[in-house]
């Protein structure tokens, strides 16, 4: 092996790249935790509809699970954006206290009855368990709850912090990281990296994209002029891939875009998640069916519990719109 090739290989193992991959995997975990929280809310909501028979233990466990899962999300957030860590934990602790109060004080008759009063009829028109559940649901994501006091509101905050943390400074850092590690300008302007192999697309002359056995990537680029793999003068993208997953990030300082997807065929785990700092872009980009959330900073969009095929079709549409 000649010296030049050896040097390229050394560069490919650079810790910066490795850290990038791990943080990409960490972000996916972050999304998983968020989804699990949404599932918990949904579970509680379903039980509250009135038909179910459950005990107080169920509700207490639900509250505990929410706190635990929220803690996991907060933790991931701290790993992704360390500078926000302290604030995140402070808020988290508030929620912990709320949860503790809910559990300790729910169901206790709050009004003192003075001796002279006629004892009012036990106002247990609502069963204790249902009462507690409804209070918990309020705290989770009640529409009538005071602003910013719900878990959902906190989740949004965390998301924002994470996304903001991956704003322009991070992007610039990444760009130079990839430029330095990869000798040649990548095809299609997309730096490609295998999440588990720590290597950048080796520009060996032929279609490097096909070297990566990534189903989501293939679908993303299927309609995107993929046959015409010309070297792109200004690489704008980094795609970290696995067989069933894809994490696409913009390298432009003026355009923040993230797309994360998992398409294994297991609807409980699969998802597509997108963020764009320009809401208008998403409107033109997305096929129907996505949940969206607008914030001052940009727009989130996601789709959960969908089939492989739906994900693949969505990716084709998005890719077509994004790269043309």
């Amino acid at each position: 092996m000649n010296i030049l090739k050896k040097l390229k290989q050394i560069r490919h193992k650079e810790p910066g790249i490795r850290e990038f991959c791990i943080q990409t995997i960490r972000f996916k975990k972050f999304l998983e935790n968020a989804r699990a929280l949404l599932d918990l809310f949904e579970d509680g909501r379903e039980k509250a509809l009135g038909e179910y028979i459950f005990d107080r233990h169920y509700v207490v466990t639900l509250i505990d699970s929410v706190i635990e899962r929220l803690g996991m999300m907060v933790y991931d957030g701290c790993v992704l954006v360390p500078e926000s860590g302290e604030k995140l934990y402070t808020t988290y602790d508030t929620h912990k206290r709320t949860a503790r109060n809910l559990i300790d004080f729910s169901g206790i008759v709050k009004k003192a009855v003075s001796p002279g009063d006629v004892t009012p009829e036990t106002s247990k028109t609502v069963d204790q368990e249902y009462q507690l559940l409804s209070e918990a649901l309020q705290w989770f994501n009640g529409k009538d709850a005071p602003l910013d006091s719900t878990v959902m509101a906190f989740m949004k905050q965390i998301f924002l912090k994470v996304i903001q943390g991956h704003g322009s400074s991070e992007v610039i850092k990444n760009r130079s990281l990839f430029e330095n590690s990869c000798g040649k300008i990548p095809d299609m302007g997309i730096y490609l990296i295998d999440l588990w192999k720590d290597q950048l697309a080796l520009p060996e002359g032929n279609s490097s994209i096909n070297d990566f056995n990534s189903i989501p990537l293939n679908h993303l680029l299927m309609d995107a002029g993929g046959k015409d793999l010309k070297a792109h003068p200004n690489p704008d993208w980094i795609a970290a891939v696995g067989e069933y997953q894809l994490s696409l990030n913009s390298l432009r300082a003026d355009f923040q875009f993230h797309l994360v997807t998992l398409a294994t065929g297991d609807a409980d785990a699969d998802f597509i998640f997108i963020f764009a700092d320009d809401a208008a872009i998403l409107d033109t980009l997305l096929p129907p069916g996505f949940h969206t959330e607008n914030t001052g900073y940009g727009q989130f969009a996601w789709n959960l519990g969908i089939s492989e095929k739906t994900i693949e079709d969505s990716l084709m549409i998005i890719g077509r719109n994004l790269f043309n």
Binding site: K47, E51, Y52, I53, F54, D55, H57, Y58
Partner: peptide, 8 residues
């Protein structure tokens, strides 16, 4: 049968 369950 484990709680939570539906009467059905």
């Amino acid at each position: 049968i484990a709680k939570p369950f539906k009467p059905a």
